[in-house]
Design a protein around this nucleic acid. Structure first.
Length: 718
RNA sequence: GGCGAGGUAGCUCAGCUGGUUAGAGCGUGCGAUUCAUAAUCGCAAGGUCGGGAGUUCAAGUCUCCCUCUCGCUACCA
């Protein structure tokens, strides 16, 4: 930490069309909060910025589906997410929203600056789907059709939510407008593109070496492996960076500030990161500060840090930095400590399958659980997906709570407060007590770990300090000395030294479990840990000064963490058991509807009926019985088999996308149906002369379609 | 197929630029202790560091090949 620097820490702006689950919390919000609280503890000049991302077609679609206005959607989720963060102690200095007028102005000014500068944006004509009935262009999200990848009939124009593939509207089969339900037509429209392609070279150097404009901007080794790896993979991929469209035909969002651009708005990913800037502006206006201090000026004095999940790496490490650089006035992030994903009891979080728990749900269902906020924070901290995907389990939640918080930390503090009260009436007596030297090293490494974003390691060190305290008490055993020599100074020194540790723990744990920190300070009869206090404590440690003066009166002992596994009180365990029971019910329901365990879906999905055709359309197809006589894999293609098919009167070669489900061996000898008069086409170097007919279920599982045994090859199908 | 990230004790993970008998927590076994929330403290067992080859005096750590998991991406008439 450098006191002369301005720290601007951001967490990914949550999208305001739904609630956030524990994975989000562990990915972008909790780590940032710990980092920021730590910096505040050191007295750094730091602001913690976030807000709701409220534009984009997903919100207007959601609104349409629910029969309410987009405004109602964003108001609901903005309020929910903001309140939930507050309850969990995520200590944003400012939580804004991108629907705010100040944000609209800021984003428009940003856009205009790029226009005026020239060379960064360009207008291009392209063909887009257009709904004739509604007389408007369709945003990607307003087009639904069959996913070319997994055949999900309800894929959106930008992404298939079943298989996760990124799509463009033109790739969808049987596209349908979500406004009128009709098949849209292609029509020419113009959009602005950001010339990302011009920024590849300096981005590569910046990410690889940390050098920007000939100056060392940051230490590339301080960035996480997977972050740098993914960025370089993107930069070096194929043709490199491509210009990106930054406007959309939509009536919800920030109007493009150009003449003749009616009906067009800034694409949500362009305006969203600018939200970090506008949110800072609002904070500054509210607090009499200058927002530019945190975004502009000497790059050596600015520490911009983005906390995000790994799905956001490309935007925050490539696109947004390119935007900032193109604009020219802004400093770039010195680190983007992206976390990987958190799974839930062995699977991905899935709202539709009911797998996982959202933040606000947790708060509701754990309403009667004492320390629910810190309990959750701690369970997530101990299991952060810092460098690889992690898994949240209720059993571990219990373990971390009982072992770390109750047995080690809570019990140590309880022991010390109890001893102080019963031996000395709650007054620390030894004046020479200080924090032992070996603890200083632990404090140092705890700080180093936080500054390196190794928060899991830092949390372990915190527990280690409490453990050291337990060990110290055990070894010194003042209760044993007291039997023979009740006035021994060793007893007083032991108790007073332990009290030093308790206060140290209260200060050190504040970034991680702030609610508990406050409770410990109450036990010590001290006010809440204040800004800059961690710095003072570290200075005192260096000088060998006491953290708690002799003669200080502490409060009465009180249980900080009642264990979950408590034989006298099952209430906490029951709350956990309820959660586990919910998951088992989901698994049981799946087992019942799908005894073979082929998949997790409980509902068969049927693809929508296609448009009506005439008999002639059908009669044009020459479908015949056939037998597969040979099969081999096509190199460099995961899904393709090269099949030789016998039609009786001739042999055909067919490339078929079935290799993920069938091996060449099991396919040979199969009776199939072949669409025989399909125009030949070259696929991966193989001339495919026809198409094998397959049936497909809602999950993309394939099955051969065939005639009866007695029918040989080459016979017609009608 | 290409790219990226991972594969280290039963479980969850540390191991920086290669260097003495590979670490921690949880779990397990044994012992100590009673100030404390059936808590605590100590000791012990447990690993061919995914597999194979190579470089080196020396490799979990570097190179190559293979394999499995996760993510992105290409092929799907």
């Amino acid at each position: 930490m450098d006191k002369s620097k301005k720290y601007c820490v951001t967490s990914a702006l949550p999208y305001a069309n739904g609630a956030l689950h524990l994975g989000h919390l562990a990915g972008a919000y909790l780590p940032a909060d710990i980092y920021v609280r730590y910096l505040r503890g050191l007295g750094a000049d730091v602001i913690f910025i976030c807000g709701s991302d409220e534009h984009g077609a997903a919100i207007t679609i959601r609104a349409k589906k629910d029969g309410i206005s987009p405004r109602e959607i964003i108001d609901k989720y903005h309020a929910l997410n903001k309140a939930t963060f507050e309850q969990l102690g995520i200590s944003f200095d400012h939580y804004d929203r991108t629907s705010a007028p100040l944000h609209h102005e800021t984003a428009q000014a940003f856009f205009k600056k790029l226009i005026d500068k020239g060379g960064e944006l360009e207008e291009r004509l392209s063909e887009q789907y257009f709904d004739e009935e509604y007389q408007q262009f369709l945003a990607d999200r307003y087009i639904m059709g069959e996913c070319p990848n997994c055949a999900n009939p309800e894929a959106y124009g930008d992404q298939c939510e079943r298989c996760g593939t990124t799509l463009s509207p033109l790739e969808l089969k049987n596209p349908k407008s979500m406004l009128s339900g009709a098949t849209p037509i292609l029509k020419e429209t113009s959009h602005w593109y950001f010339r990302l392609d011009k920024h590849g070279d300096w981005l590569r150097e910046w990410i690889k070496t940390g050098v920007l404009d000939g100056q060392q901007h940051h230490d590339p080794k301080a960035w996480k492996n997977h972050v740098v790896g993914q960025c370089l993979s993107w930069l070096d991929d194929g043709d490199g960076l491509q210009p990106r469209s930054i406007t959309r035909d939509l009536d919800w969002g920030i109007p493009v500030p150009m003449p003749g651009a009616e009906g067009k708005v800034l694409y949500v990913w362009f305006d969203a990161p600018i939200g970090y800037i506008s949110s800072t502006k609002q904070w500054a206006a509210d607090n009499g500060k200058n927002w530019e201090d945190y975004w502009k000026g000497d790059p050596d004095k600015l520490q911009l840090v983005h906390f995000i999940g790994k799905d956001n790496i490309v935007f925050h490490c490539i696109v947004f930095p390119a935007m900032l650089k193109a604009h020219g006035d802004y400093a770039l992030p010195v680190n983007v400590p992206a976390n990987q994903f958190l799974n839930f009891e062995g699977r991905k979080f899935s709202k539709s399958k009911g797998w996982g728990i959202e933040q606000h749900e947790y708060l509701e269902e754990f309403a009667d659980f004492p320390n629910k906020e810190d309990a959750l924070r701690w369970a997530l901290i101990r299991n952060l997906p810092e460098n690889k995907d992690a898994d949240f389990k209720w059993d571990e939640f219990v373990d971390f709570y009982d072992k770390d918080l109750a047995d080690k930390l809570g019990n140590f503090i309880n022991r010390v407060i109890t001893l102080t009260n019963s031996y000395y009436g709650g007054i620390a007596t030894a004046s020479s007590a200080t924090v032992p030297d070996n603890i200083k090293g632990l404090v140092e490494s705890l700080c180093e770990d936080i500054e390196a974003y190794n928060l899991k390691a830092a949390a372990s060190t915190l527990v280690e300090i409490a453990s050291w305290g337990n060990q110290y008490l055990q070894d010194t055993a003042p209760w044993a000395i007291r039997k023979t020599d009740p006035d021994s100074p060793v007893i007083a020194l032991c108790i007073s030294t332990s009290l030093q540790l308790v206060n140290l723990l209260a200060v050190l744990c504040e970034p991680f479990i702030p609610f508990t920190s406050l409770k410990i300070r109450n036990l010590l009869n001290l006010p809440a840990v204040k800004t800059g206090e961690l710095g003072e404590v570290i200075a005192k440690l260096k000088n060998g000064e006491a953290l708690l003066p002799a003669g200080h009166q502490v409060g009465q002992p009180e249980i900080l963490f009642a264990k979950i596994n408590d034989r006298n009180d099952k209430s906490r365990l029951e709350i956990i058991e309820r959660q586990k029971a919910k998951l088992e019910a989901i698994l049981a329901a799946e087992q019942q509807s799908n005894p073979e365990g082929a998949g997790n879906s409980t509902i068969q999905q049927y693809s929508p009926m296609k448009d009506e055709i005439q008999y002639d359309d059908f009669a044009k197809m020459d479908i015949r019985t056939a037998t597969i006589t040979a099969a081999e894999r096509i190199p460099k293609a995961d899904k393709l088999l090269k099949l030789t098919v016998d039609l009786g009167f001739e042999q055909r070669t067919v490339a078929s996308g079935i290799a993920e489900q069938f091996t060449p061996e099991e396919v040979v000898g199969k009776q199939v149906l072949l669409l025989a008069n399909l125009a030949p086409r070259k696929i991966r170097g193989v001339e495919s002369q026809g198409m094998i007919l397959m049936a497909e279920d809602g999950e993309g599982k394939l099955s051969f379609v065939q005639a009866g045994e007695a029918f040989g090859p080459g016979l017609g199908v009608k």
